[in-house]
Simulated scan of single mutants.
Amino acid sequence: MGLDPQWVTDPALALPRTGALRVLGNGVVPQQAAAALRLLLCPHRWAVPA
């Protein structure tokens, strides 16, 4: 998913497997979110032709 190693599996977090899966379940892939924001914020994409 592009997250740092041990994002939810770090022993210091003490998350059970079900908890780790729940945290990741509704996660957004950071690279996908960045691409979506670039597309949405591009002024040329939303320019109305004259």
Rank of each mutant, 00 (worst) to 15 (best):
A36F: 04
V48H: 02
Q6W: 10
A47C: 05
C42D: 15
G25M: 06
C42S: 15
L24D: 00
G2C: 01
L24C: 04
V48L: 12
A12C: 02
L41K: 09
R38F: 05
V29L: 08
L21Y: 11
H44M: 11
A34C: 02
L37S: 00
P49I: 04
A35L: 12
P30G: 01
A34D: 01
A50N: 06
N26R: 14
L37W: 04
L15H: 04
D10K: 08
V28S: 10
Q32D: 14
A33I: 03
T18Y: 11
G2K: 00
A33W: 10
V8R: 11
A33V: 08
N26E: 08
A47K: 04
C42Q: 15
R17W: 09
A33H: 08
L39K: 11
A14V: 07
L3T: 06
V28C: 12
D4L: 14
V29A: 12
R22T: 14
R38Y: 02
L40P: 02
L21R: 15
L40K: 06
G25H: 15
G19V: 00
A50Q: 10
L24Y: 01
V28F: 11
V29C: 10
D10P: 01
P49K: 09
L40H: 05
L40S: 06
P49A: 11
T9V: 04
G19F: 02
M1Y: 13
W46D: 09
L15R: 03
L24S: 01
Q6E: 15
V29G: 01
R45E: 06
L15T: 03
G27A: 15
L21M: 14
W7P: 02
R45F: 05
Q31G: 08
Q6A: 11
D10G: 01
T9I: 04
A35Y: 03
D4Y: 09
A20Q: 15
P43H: 03
L24R: 09
P5T: 00
T9F: 05
L13N: 10
L13G: 02
H44S: 13
L41P: 00
G19E: 15
L40I: 07
L39N: 08
A14Y: 00
T9W: 10
L39I: 08
A35G: 05
N26K: 13
A12G: 06
V28D: 13
C42P: 02
V28W: 12
Q32W: 06
R17C: 04
T18F: 11
A33C: 03
P30K: 00
L41F: 07
R17H: 10
D10M: 00
A36C: 06
V8S: 03
P49M: 09
A36Q: 05
P16C: 08
A20I: 04
A33Q: 05
G19Y: 02
L40Y: 06
N26T: 12
A35D: 15
P16D: 15
C42L: 11
R38I: 10
P16W: 05
G2D: 02
P11C: 04
G25L: 11
Q31I: 07
G27I: 02
G25S: 15
